[in-house]
């Protein structure tokens, strides 16, 4: 609505640099031919990437992270899909309360959720490990998925569903032939984003696992050893590029054929 503001523009560019420089630093040093992260740069090398590819404990951790991430994203997206349907289709009693309760795990400090699950798990005499980690990730991702799905479901025309009903489809047919295709991009986005959240998550995994490491835990363990650091940087660079692509893809999906015609569909991040 306003025309120009050079000061604000300059500020935005500076803030942009503040946001990105720390993130870009790791990839830069991952190609640097030196163990310590110090300027000036020494020379270009790919040996840290070679070391990364041959680190066997890293492979195990990567596999664990993918396993936890896939299960967590599928379950949280399913649970969130049902909940999003309830909130967008029905006027229900105690709506605010239920809505708040489901969003709560997103706001409560993760460490509180982590220690509570330790108390529950050990109290039941169960072994800590990837199972409680996955459970905590489902809990943590569900609010997120729900926000992503609701913002899409609110956007589309309810008449489409009613029209399908009038044309003789039952509830299941309506869902399968009308609702699902319309919501599909958001479902995929929700799967991708919750996978990224779970893949990156540190605190819950740190508290709730015993011997099985996830990728962030592996990196945490390596940060203490200066000699191991460069290959963590190489790993970090790969993670940064991969997550950026996944996130970009999911943003694109969320706006794909958005029936509401709103371009800025960012509800709930």
């Amino acid at each position: 609505m306003y025309k120009k503001n050079n000061i604000l523009f300059l500020y935005s560019i500076l803030y942009f640099a503040f946001l990105y420089i720390p993130v870009m630093l790791l990839p830069v040093f991952s190609f640097n031919d030196a163990i310590h992260m110090v300027f000036p740069l020494k020379g270009f090398t790919l040996k840290w990437y070679d070391q990364m590819i041959h680190a066997s404990r890293l492979h195990q951790a990567l596999f664990n992270s993918i396993k936890v991430g896939v299960i967590a994203s599928i379950f949280s997206t399913l649970i969130a899909l049902l909940a999003a349907k309830a909130f967008t289709k029905y006027k229900l009693r105690l709506r605010q309360l239920s809505y708040g309760a489901i969003l709560l795990p997103f706001v409560i400090p993760e460490i509180i959720i982590a220690v509570s699950l330790i108390v529950l798990w050990t109290g039941m005499g169960l072994q800590l490990g990837l199972i409680p980690v996955t459970l905590s990730h489902i809990l943590f991702c569900t609010p997120f998925c729900m926000l992503v799905l609701i913002s899409r479901m609110e956007g589309f025309d309810k008449n489409l569903e009613e029209a399908a009903m009038d044309l003789g489809e039952n509830a299941w047919g309506t869902f399968w032939r009308v609702t699902f295709p319309l919501v599909l991009p958001a479902i995929v986005a929700s799967l991708l984003l919750s996978f990224v959240i779970s893949f990156d998550e540190f605190i819950l995994a740190f508290f709730l696992t015993s011997n099985d490491q996830t990728l962030p835990l592996y990196m945490w363990g390596q940060l203490r050893f200066p000699k191991k650091l460069p290959h963590v940087l190489a790993l970090g660079a790969v993670i940064i590029v991969a997550t950026s692509i996944i996130v970009m893809l999911s943003y694109w999906l969320r706006n794909l054929g958005n029936p509401s015609g709103k371009k800025n569909n960012i509800g709930g991040i």
Binding site: V23, M219, G236, M248
Partner: peptide, 11 residues
């Protein structure tokens, strides 16, 4: 503006 938020918190 939100992209860096998605890349590894730890890193």
């Amino acid at each position: 503006m939100t992209l860096p938020f998605w890349t590894s918190y730890l890193l």
